[in-house]
């Protein structure tokens, strides 16, 4: 009898009633939600014990499980699965915009300090410093050039005492 609610015949009287979701489906969804909750907790415990190492994936996995749970709730408990597609679209659009807001704000807060990896001195000043260094090196260059100990025509050294 509950299965009949799936067919459109129940709605042909012109009034848009609630879709009646079979109890079995509701219970299955409930079971899935409980399982996922347990999974989240168990994963958390394992990670603390050191049984598994999710590392950087820790938060994405937790958020993923939470997302699946939220989707199940929206689809079955909120009956969006049986509603007009437009409602599902509107619902998911609002989620999309929330995600957009978070992601773009994260682009800021997550990379805030990267400015400071570059030196504070302006580039023209840095170029000038580099130029000065180069000039100084060039000025010092002769002093460091290798001098032959004995020049061919050095009579003072060759001359015997």
């Amino acid at each position: 009898m509950a299965e009949n609610a799936h067919t459109s015949s129940g709605h042909d009287d012109g009034h848009h009633g609630h879709h009646i979701i079979p109890l079995g489906v509701l219970l299955k969804v409930f079971g899935a939600l409980i399982f996922l909750t347990i999974l989240t907790v168990v994963l958390g415990l394992w990670e603390r014990d050191g049984t598994i190492h999710l590392g950087a994936l820790s938060v994405p996995v937790a958020l993923g499980i939470a997302g699946v749970k939220a989707t199940l709730v929206a689809m079955f408990f909120m009956a969006l699965k049986y509603d007009t597609r437009v409602n599902a679209l509107a619902f998911s659009l609002s989620i999309v915009f929330l995600v957009v807001f978070f992601v773009f704000t994260f682009l800021d807060t997550g990379f805030r300090d990267t400015f400071n990896e570059w030196p504070d001195t302006p580039i023209d000043e840095r170029e000038l410093q580099e130029l000065r260094l180069q000039e100084r090196n060039e000025a010092l260059q002769p002093a460091f050039e290798a001098q032959p100990l004995v020049l061919p025509g050095d009579t003072a050294l060759i001359r015997t005492p």
Binding site: F104, L107, D108, R112, D113, T114, F115
Partner: peptide, 22 residues
Amino acid sequence: GFLVWGHHMFVSGQSPLSSIVF
């Protein structure tokens, strides 16, 4: 229009990455 709001904030100290994207 929803994806460009950061162009009001180029000198606010937001990260260079988000400035470029915006």
